[in-house]
Simulated assay, not measured.
Amino acid sequence: MTGEGRMALLKDAMVGQWRSMGSMAAMFVGTILLAIYIQPFWDRPESRAFGEAGTTKVGLIGLEFILILIFTGVIIWLAKRGLQVIIKWAVLIILWISLSYCLIPLSSYALDTPQPTVEFRTEEHFNHDFHFTDLDSSGFIVDNQTHLIKYSEASGIESGIQANQIWSWPLDMGNQSFSAHPITIVDNIDSYIFCDQSRWVKLDKNDGSVISTYDVHCNAGFSTSEYDWEIIDTLLQKIDPFHPNIPNHSWTYKLPEQFLGKDFLRGVLLNDGEMLLVSDDWAGIIEIPDEPHNQDRG
């Protein structure tokens, strides 16, 4: 047979099979496009055979290649033994798994509600140190290095709402000097107790006016209807209004060992007999003493 004859036969064969060849090409391209479309859905470690390491470790990639060779060898062995039934059901199961992996992300794309685009509004930089927020989040307290400021309506809760200043209290200790120690604020029911290891100040919640103050080195403090108290390290001490810097051992009590005043996070006076304290390593409610003790420290 001449070369022209062979080309004619090849041409006739291709013309007769163009539908099959076109279908295979379309399936090949369509499969790749479908894989690209659903790939983001499965692009997470828990969906991979060996997790995140399965895409980077050469050993795991080699193991996957070996498993493919083993699977191919098993199929060839079954075909040689004439076990086409097993091959048929195995192929059907594999096709079912593949179809599931395609339909799950497609169903998710079709049924999931698209997330709205978040638009952030431009806001001025809030150059303040945050110290306290009320339990109902109606107000919060910050400082700007020179003043302690209480705001309401935290900006960002609703579009267009800005924080409103309620009151401002100067941090000046005299002669334009300011404490460099950490500030703590305790929710004292109808007031706030401010401490900065240089002074204890009771501030009115409504207008920030000073109700009482002591020059004591406290980590935190609170005030009941009868007494004023300070927390220093692991000790709770009643403040003597006439001699605030002289500790009265009969009114000095040990706090739990895990609680450290320097790690104070939050304090809330629940009533005249109970106080909530929170630090880095301890949180709990303490009972507030109502009478002195006879020991060295209670």
Rank of each mutant, 00 (worst) to 15 (best):
L95R: 10
I66L: 06
R266F: 12
T122S: 05
E46Q: 08
A8W: 10
W89L: 01
A163I: 00
G139E: 07
Q145V: 06
D187H: 03
T113Y: 13
E119I: 15
N248P: 03
W167L: 03
E274M: 05
S100K: 14
G30W: 00
V278R: 09
E274L: 03
I161A: 12
E257H: 09
N127M: 07
R44W: 01
H131A: 12
A53V: 12
W77K: 14
R19F: 15
G284T: 01
G160D: 01
D134S: 13
I183Y: 04
V278A: 04
L103Q: 03
G221A: 11
S100R: 15
V15P: 00
W42L: 11
G174N: 04
D196Y: 02
M1G: 08
D136Y: 01
A13Y: 14
F259I: 12
Q295E: 09
G273W: 00
V210P: 02
M21D: 13
G284V: 05
G54Q: 07
H128S: 05
L270V: 06
T252C: 03
W77E: 10
D196H: 03
P40A: 01
Q165A: 10
Y192I: 14
G221T: 15
F264A: 14
E274D: 08
I97Y: 07
S152H: 06
G30V: 02
S225V: 13
D280W: 13
M1D: 06
N206F: 09
I246H: 11
Q84T: 09
I285A: 02
I75C: 11
S23F: 09
S138D: 11
K262W: 14
G261M: 10
L67K: 11
H181I: 14
P45R: 11
H293E: 04
S250Q: 07
L269H: 09
N245S: 08
Q165Y: 03
W18Y: 13
V91F: 09
F28L: 09
K57R: 06
D143Q: 01
A26T: 01
G273I: 00
K205M: 07
D290F: 12
